[in-house]
Design a protein around this nucleic acid. Structure first.
Length: 195
DNA sequence: AGTTGGATGGTCT
DNA sequence: GACCATCCAACTG
């Protein structure tokens, strides 16, 4: 079993949100965004990366929470195996030295194995076949669970969403990204504001 | 340590 | 035909 704690998310709305995939209305790609709360919306970006969202609004309305980073807590071996086995979708350019890839993965600390939206999907083997899945089903292979009772709450920082400048204002500037303040597992990409 | 460019193809214009 | 809710490698300093 693999498990982790979500430490960074972004909120996306319906057709009115110019940064949301729902901005062009309902299509085959984004149909899951109109699904019931607690279901998954999984999409592919840049032709190679899959990303996991949790639908939050009532059925018939579009919404999604993008899971941007997870702190791995259990199943580290399996998470590393998933990272090692992962072949970038459709890649044609062969890596010069496969050994270098293994060495690079070995240098990544446990806490940073799922520090990015596409990395979350790889670490937990989420793919587009999970699109529409019920994440609240206790028997499901991919589940969203409440934090254990008594676990101290994390301080939450807020800021603008990453990579949505094209949407223009007010959408690009909305502070709809939420992360655990100062947490090591938060993503730190180019467009990202970091921890 | 920080910055830049390449990969890649489905989706929408 | 252009864009894209990203990641990694290869640079520069």
């Amino acid at each position: 079993m693999r498990a982790g704690r979500i430490v960074e998310v972004e909120a996306y709305g319906g057709p009115e949100d110019r940064a949301s995939h729902a901005r062009s209305g309902r299509t085959a790609r984004n149909a899951a965004m109109w699904g019931p709360p607690g279901s998954a919306y999984v999409y592919r970006v840049y032709g190679m990366h899959d990303c996991l969202n949790v639908v939050t609004g009532p059925s018939g309305t579009a919404s999604a929470i993008l899971v941007r980073a997870v702190e791995p807590l259990a199943g580290l071996e399996r998470i590393r195996a998933a990272r090692a086995d992962h072949a970038p979708a459709g890649r044609r350019v062969v890596r010069a030295d496969p050994g270098a890839v293994v060495a690079r993965l070995a240098r990544i600390p446990d806490v940073r194995l799922a520090s990015g939206p596409a990395l979350v999907a790889v670490a937990f083997s989420v793919s587009r076949s999970d699109d529409g899945a019920d994440l609240l089903d206790p028997g499901g292979s991919l589940r969203l669970e409440a934090a254990p009772a008594g676990e101290p709450a994390l301080a939450v920082a807020v800021g603008p969403r990453v990579g949505v400048a094209y949407a223009g204002e007010p959408w690009a500037g909305l502070a709809w990204r939420f992360w655990a303040a100062g947490h090591v597992s938060v993503s730190a990409g180019r467009g990202s504001a970091g921890r």
